[in-house]
Design a protein around this nucleic acid. Sequence first.
DNA 1: CCGTAAGTTGACTATCGGTCCACTTTACGG
DNA 2: CCGTAAAGTGGACCGATAGTCAACTTACGG
Lengths: 195, 195
Amino acid sequence: MSEPLRADAARNRAAILRATEELLTSSHPRQISMEQVAAAANVGKGTVFHRFGSRDGLLHELMRERARDLEIAITTGPPPLGEGAPPRARLLAFLTAVVEVVARNKGLLAALGTGAPGAGAPKQEPREEHPVYRSWHGHISRLVHERRPDLDADMLAHVFLATVHSEPILNALERGDGDRLDRTLRDLVTGLMPE
Amino acid sequence: MSEPLRADAARNRAAILRATEELLTSSHPRQISMEQVAAAANVGKGTVFHRFGSRDGLLHELMRERARDLEIAITTGPPPLGEGAPPRARLLAFLTAVVEVVARNKGLLAALGTGAPGAGAPKQEPREEHPVYRSWHGHISRLVHERRPDLDADMLAHVFLATVHSEPILNALERGDGDRLDRTLRDLVTGLMPE
DNA sequence: CCGTAAGTTGACTATCGGTCCACTTTACGG
DNA sequence: CCGTAAAGTGGACCGATAGTCAACTTACGG
């Protein structure tokens, strides 16, 4: 899928990601400059851009990393996250897991969701969806459809995920209200998928 | 509440707001620079800042304007938006109206929801909520609580509003999927507030 | 070893939000 | 009317920051 990196490149890549995580624990993504990241990783700014292309690319990649465990859990792990449990249980487990991942990553997802297209050219495309978002959306959508094929599973999945894009909710999570959100989502799902 | 503006100031204020709306119809808020706004309104950049304080202030004020009609409708208008109808009907009518307002205003709300605190100082407060958001949140929260005092109305209201913060959903709205979203929200509310 | 492709770097550019202050316009009391 | 002070105006300027680039360094297969 991708050429292996040279030893120094791999080292720097890891250092940059680690430094970004580090900075992320103490600041909102919007306040972290690429220069800060480069400095914290002990590399030149150019290196950061060479590897990740852009600010969004870096955040994007970091998110990918953070989401990997969950991805594995739902595809090859045991129920209720993995296959085997009924859709409703899987959905509830998944939403709980997503809330947990997002809570641990503050505004990362939110920052990702907000990117402007490139140059000044009249590129007006809605911007490609983030792979992690796509994966999560597909999973929710599939589970909902399985149990309630009469609903608009696609839109419903977007609505559920919107939750973790919302700044007020992110703030609530930061205050430790993760379980409140969890219970609320549970109530919503239960309303839609009884039993 | 506020001193009346001088004639020229009022004229320019209106021109700036109108120019911003104009630009907003053809671009995402993030790509509109204050310089563009100033140019489009035929005023100096300084004037824009003098009147609105900041980029956020301008967007903020514009949103306020856009939300005014809805505000009036729910406080003094006829049912089902205004008082008189049962909570469920009022909530459904309100959500439909919100979707409609947001659909007509693209990412305005989304752009508002995303602001970083000020200077470099370690000001880490969660940032004050937008008045329009607060008003909408309070309204939803009250209606939910009236019918289902057992639920976490506060969090639930955040979840409903998160919907209009989400970029994928905003894109869907732009594609004319407003009624799909509307139906989906209706399903969610119905699941929670049956009858 | 050596050639070379990959990687590194920080000075440089472009852009943009926001500030500042000298200048202009308006409102209004006399 | 007119003089004046308060309000408003505008654009040069500043600091920050995402992203570029061309010269330089390094890893590594043969």
